[in-house]
Each structure stands twice: as structure tokens, then as C-alpha cells.
Computed example of a mutant assay.
Amino acid sequence: MAEKTIMLVCSAGMSTSLLVTKMQKAAEAKGLDAEIFATGASDAENKLEEKHPDILMLGPQVKYMEEDYKKKLDIPVVSINMQDYGMMNGEKVLNTAIEDLEK
């Protein structure tokens, strides 16, 4: 089982899969044992129950869900920086997750 589980949510789960790949490569380079996966907003509740992530990261297109999730969950809920998302900067998004997990 991975040391940390990072869940990304976007509107359909498709655009974020490339970001997941880049985040996994960055995690490997850091020697971090992490399970990183993406899901669509429609399936997010199921994945939360199934995977029990350590952090939930929201794509810019579903940022409006942030407050609802913060009220419901006792894990960090973070919106992914729009520029980092647009550039598919996996390392920066991973660093944001790590920083929030360490708070």
C-alpha cells in the first residue's frame, strides 16, 4: 500500500489523467511512494469511500466544489493552481500536495 494517496477530481476525469502521469514521475524522482489517481466529479464520492485518500485536489473546472468537500471531509482539500494545471506541471502540483499534507 502506498505511503500517501492523492486523489484528483476534474469534471470528467480525462484531462487530469495526463497530470497524474506527470505527478507519478515526479513522485518517483523524489523517492515518494504515492498512489495518485484521477476521477470525474460524478464518481468522486465512490472513490473517496473506496480509496480513502490522504488529500483531495480539485481541478480548476470543479473548484466550486471546494467548500462542500472541506465541510464533509477531514483531509486537506486543495484547488489545483490553474496555471500549473494548464501547463500540466506535475512536479508543482505534487509539491502543493506534499506541502498541504505536512500542515
Results as ranks from 00 to 15, higher is better:
Leu58Cys: 13
Glu28Asn: 13
Lys4Asn: 15
Leu73Ile: 05
Asp84Lys: 05
Lys51Gln: 14
Ser11Arg: 14
Cys10Ala: 14
Asn81Asp: 15
Ala38Glu: 02
Gly13Cys: 13
Lys92Met: 09
Asn81Gly: 06
Phe37Tyr: 15
Lys103Asn: 05
Lys92Asn: 11
Ile80Leu: 03
Pro76Asp: 01
Gln83Thr: 10
Tyr85Glu: 08
Val93Tyr: 04
Gln24His: 07
Lys25Leu: 10
Leu19Ser: 11
Gly59Asn: 10
Ile75Val: 13
Thr16Gln: 01
Lys72Phe: 03
Glu28Asp: 15
Ile98Pro: 02
Val9Gly: 00
Cys10Tyr: 06
Leu32Gln: 10
Ala29Cys: 08
Gly90Ser: 07
Val62Gln: 01
Glu102Met: 04
Pro60Gly: 12
Phe37Gln: 10
Ile98Asn: 02
Ala41Lys: 01
Met87Arg: 07
Glu3Thr: 07
Gly59Pro: 11
Ala44Asn: 06
Asn81Pro: 07
Met88Arg: 02
Gly86Ile: 05
Lys30Ser: 14
Gln83Pro: 01
Lys92Arg: 09
Ala44His: 07
Met82Tyr: 08
Met14Asn: 14
Thr39Pro: 00
Glu28Gln: 14
Lys92Leu: 11
Lys51Pro: 06
His52Glu: 15
Gln61Cys: 11
Pro60Trp: 13
Asn95Tyr: 00
Lys103Pro: 00
Met7Phe: 12
Met82Val: 13
Tyr85Asp: 08
Lys51Asp: 12
Met82Phe: 09
Met1Phe: 14
Met88Gly: 01
Thr16Cys: 10
Val77Phe: 06
Gly31Trp: 12
Glu102Thr: 03
Gly31Ala: 12
Ala12Leu: 02
Asp74Pro: 03
Met82Ala: 13
Lys92Ile: 03
Ser42Asn: 12
Asp84Glu: 11
Asp68Gln: 03
Glu49His: 12
Ser15Pro: 11
Leu8Tyr: 13
Glu50Cys: 03
Leu19Val: 09
Val20Phe: 06
Glu91Val: 04
Gly59His: 06
Lys72Asp: 08
Val9Phe: 01
Lys25Arg: 12
Lys103His: 09
Ala2Ser: 15
Glu50Val: 03
Gly86Asn: 06
Met23Asp: 09
Ile6Asp: 07
Glu50Asn: 08
Lys103Val: 04
Pro53Trp: 11
Tyr69Pro: 06
Glu66Asn: 11
Leu73Trp: 06
Ala34Ser: 10
Met88Lys: 03
Ala41Phe: 01
Asp84His: 06
Met87Trp: 01
Leu48Thr: 07
Glu3Ile: 05
Tyr69Arg: 06
Thr5His: 15
Met23Phe: 06
Met23Ala: 08
Cys10Phe: 12
Gly40Ser: 02
Gly13Gln: 10
Met82Gln: 08
Glu91Gly: 02
Ser11Met: 15
Asn46Cys: 02
Ile36His: 08
Lys51Ile: 14
Lys63Ala: 15
Asp84Phe: 04
Glu67Met: 13
Asp43Leu: 08
Asp100Thr: 00
Gly31Thr: 12
Val93Ser: 03
Met65Ala: 12
Gln24Leu: 13
